[in-house]
Computed example of a mutant assay.
Amino acid sequence: MQLTAGNKVALVACSNGLPVDQQPEVQRLMQVLRGMGLCPVCSDYLYAGPTAFAGTAAQRAAALQQAYADSQIRAIFDISGGDMANQLLDLLDYRQIAASPKPFFGYSDLTVLLNALYTKTGAVSYLYQVKNLIWQSSAQQQPAFVASMFSGADDLFRVKWHFLRGERMSGTLLGGNLRCLLKLAGTPYIPDLTGKLLFIESLGGGVPQMVTYLSQLRQLGVFKHISGLLLGTFTYMQQHRQQPSMHQLVLQETQGCTFPIAYTSQVGHANTSRCLPIGGPYTVQLP
């Protein structure tokens, strides 16, 4: 995937609508993208009204569908998050999306869409919040974004991993935010994780919530089928120094399993976060 100067890119909000007071932030993001030579085009449904919705589910789905249908749009950046992206899953025309593939970027609640796109089309999407370009770590994010998106470098994708178990894993990478990924359980949009690498991270939730989520993964049979587990940041747990740690919980929950487990502090909800290719090939190994 590579962008060039003059390309149009779409800004959409498939999950919760943005507060209206974030309009200056979006304008700043558009300025940065224009400074890189891109031409950002905004969905009509970015901002929440009196409720949390930026338009109906059908309107938000249509805006995303139009971004895929427009041949001049070369990439789609979702700038929302929250809880409601799964409203769109059964309203999208996946055949049309597959016929006009283009990179889709989102994080957090957009985990549901990243993984559904893989399930329904085989597309590679990207776990990344483009607003990182204007947040606190913008001085590091902007050059990494430019190098990766325009020159094909791996700056934005380069992640340092450490192993809890094993020393190498390779396969198709799936997952994202743990709570949001589990919304797909029992739906036609959850990907087949057999032989895959699963990445998980979380913004909120303490030990009880993580135990619940890990137990659900085990009960779904996930730990019987994946070939590797990758852990990002677990912000609430780490900020509050909760015990047992997420690493300890994972090792407890996967006792008897042999798949490798690795972790990083470079992917999650922080504005320093790197980008992961959801649905793409991925390899992690000791140096």
Results as ranks from 00 to 15, higher is better:
L3N: 04
N16W: 03
L18T: 00
P19V: 08
P19C: 10
R28T: 12
M30D: 13
L38Y: 03
V41W: 08
Y47E: 07
T51N: 00
G55S: 01
T56A: 01
D78W: 08
N86M: 08
N86H: 14
P101S: 02
K102W: 02
G106I: 10
S108K: 12
L110N: 14
L113P: 00
Y118H: 15
T119G: 04
G122H: 02
V124N: 00
Y126E: 02
V130N: 07
Q136A: 14
A139K: 07
Q141Y: 07
Q141E: 13
A144W: 11
A147V: 06
S148F: 00
A153L: 09
F157I: 02
F157K: 04
T172R: 15
C180N: 15
C180V: 08
K183L: 13
I190E: 14
L197H: 06
G204D: 13
V222R: 07
K224E: 15
L230P: 00
M237Q: 12
M237T: 09
Q238L: 02
Q242D: 05
Q252M: 14
F259G: 09
A262M: 13
A262P: 05
Q266A: 11
H269D: 10
H269T: 13
A270S: 14
L276Q: 10
P277A: 09
P287F: 02
P287C: 06
